[in-house]
Amino acid sequence: MLSLRIVRRIARGLPRSLGDPLFKGLSAVVAIGVVALLGIITLVLAFAAEPSIRRFGPSFLAGGVWNPVPPEVFGAAPFVYGTLVTSALALLIGVPISLGIAIFLSELAPAWLRIPLTYIVELLAAVPSVVYGLWGIFVLDPTMRSVIEPAVQATLGFLPIFQGTPIGSDKFAAGVILAVMVVPTISAVSREALLAVLANQREAALSLGATRWETTRLAVLRYARAGIFGAIILGLGRAVGETMAVTMMIGNRNAISVSLFDQGQTIASWIANNFTEAGPLELSALIELGLVLMLMSLLINVFARLMVRRVLRRGEGAA
């Protein structure tokens, strides 16, 4: 109370001409601060990773062995591979479901259902990841092992990605739990994007005799594309960096294998697993892994942005 009054009094005491530049300056400082922070983090990471970078060079990225027993050898390939596979799987499963939810919430659901459902979806986005992990261990893992994975194997078992013994904690299970975790994010943000499409756009399509689906596809989805892409990238960000739930589901095995029923490992999960007991060189290698993860996120973001721009431009041409 008191402090607010003081702030207001100070603000009132300032000459009018000072207010605007002051505000501008403060915002600029905060904005530049974020960029500077990112730079500082990168620098600190690079500095701490230096012993590992010097020792292993580019072979760090290609190396498939992580052994802290002397002579120490550290390689990142299995973790990079695991991160890419599980995140891709998460999007493959999660995106269609999320879009279904978003379209239902914005276009199809009756009004009385819309609001409670929206709240619930947004609530799911706030569940801590360790809770998803526990659910994964006690519910998803046995279900995957005894129901889903055998069923998948019975129908698609000829594919190399579905071979081996299903044991329930593997790359497939990790992909599924990540899908469950990205669905709330992607559907909530996509719903916003769909709602942002003007109502008369829909009305125009309907008045031309389009069905509900044609309206959604032609008049709504097409115009919300950029927003939906953004939502997917947000979801991907969560999937790539997720630690706890993945550790609890992926089986933590440092190997590259084609089958989704084999155990794997991701970058974030490996860092979390090994930070506490790491020796000096291993610590440095873990930090280099962190750098690799940051770089990967950056590349994915840039790539996605380029893709959005291309898709949008093509959209304009067609329209």
Binding site: P68, V69, T247, M248, G251, R253, Q263, N273, E277
Partner: peptide, 18 residues
């Protein structure tokens, strides 16, 4: 062998849990 002795090692088989 000694290359398999430590607080964390490169395991020949099996899955890992936290």
């Amino acid at each position: 062998g000694t290359s398999l002795v430590g607080k964390s090692i490169s395991w020949p088989v099996g899955s890992g849990q936290l």
